[in-house]
Structures are given as C-alpha cells and as structure tokens.
Design a protein around this nucleic acid. Sequence first.
DNA 1: CACCAGGCCCTAT
DNA 2: ATAGGGCATGGT
Length: 215
Amino acid sequence: MYIDLMKLYDLLSNEYKISDGWWPGNNKFEIMLGALLTQNTNWGNVEKSLENIKTNSLMDPEKLYNLSLEKLEHLIKPSGFYKMKAKYVKNLLGWFKNYEFSFEKIAIKNKDELRNELLQIKGIGKETADSILLYAFDKLSFVIDAYTKRMFARLGFKIKNDYDTYKLFFEENIPEDLLIYKNYHGLIVEHSKYICKKNPICQNCFLKSYCKLDR
DNA sequence: CACCAGGCCCTAT
DNA sequence: ATAGGGCATGGT
C-alpha cells in the first residue's frame, strides 16, 4: 500500500500543536543528554534526572566528564538503568572531548562520519545516534522509534520491520528540511500518547478513516 | 498488584 | 541473522 508521507504530516500537524523543533530542552547539551537518558524510559523520569544535574550546576559536558561515576549514577537514578546509563554518558562525553566539548567543532563535520562515530560508542544505538544528530547537531537524520513502527503497522503499511528500512523510506519521501524532520518525529511521539496501546486496531484514532486495515 | 516507558548490549541458537 | 534476557525507576 502507498502512504503519502507529507499528507500524513499535514494531518498530524493539524491535529496536534507542538512547538517548532519539538524536542524539550534548553540547549544542545541538554538535548544530547536527554536523548541517551530516555532510552526505554518515560520522559518524565528523564526530566527529574536533568533537574538533578541542573540544580547541582553540573549541566556542562566537561564538569560531568570529570564527575565521579558514583555521583553521576546518583544524579541520573530517576531515569532508570542508571548504572549502565552512567557509563554510557561517560562514553559519550569521552567522545565529545575529542571535539573539545564544542558543538561548533561538531557542526563542520560530515553527517555520515559523525553517525558512524556515534554508533561506535557503547550505549549509543541507531535511535539515540539519530536523535543526537538531528536535535542536538542539526543534521538531517530521521529518527525512527517503536512508536513509528507501531503506528505504520497499524496503518496497514507493509514494510520490513527494520530500522534502516523505515529511516530510508522517510528520508526519500520528505523534503530535506530540518524543521520537518524534527517536527515529524515529534508529531508521531505526540500521536502515540493518544492511541490505544493494547488493542492493535485503534477504534478512536483520528486517522481511522485513513487506516487501510480491515476492521 | 501488573504493566509500561521516545533502547541497547550481550549471548545463544 | 535474529530472538530473548537483563537492565531499574516512577507513573497509572
């Protein structure tokens, strides 16, 4: 079946109001950190961790890099998997240190090169890498997550249930526009809050008439 | 009480 | 290549 991605984008935009760029966070570093901490974790829990870091005046890559693992673990405890994530944060910061913790130095680098470097960091998978690339580094790299796959499966879209297949499908069918990339993923996450989680066929979804599944 | 949340790594087939 | 277990907190 065929899905017009920009038509779907317009439908979602019309249904949900989100802020431009969507990702919650005051600065690039906070966004980068949040992308890692939110792995399989409710955003509300991530916010608690980010608050802990801020109230201790540690929302700074170099300061966190120099912080002991134990203290870091304590700060990010609310976002779950905290022992593993503390190490992952350290790994990410170790990589960031190669660029002297500077987003300007990152910005001049090639997108694919950066993506490969991120993917080699233990704790950074495809979704986290793409989230950081798109929302913190402003690179055109579409983010796929569980919501995206679930939503498209429910729309009756036949596609290989594979991260790269989904990513390519989006990137080949939407304009090369940062705001569209950012907002599109945001709209899908927003939409996921309202669809039925258990029933595979949602009965009260506003896209119901657009859905090609047999009911 | 059970279940889930904006994944990822490691291991065993 | 791919499936399944472990990781952990806080909200509903």
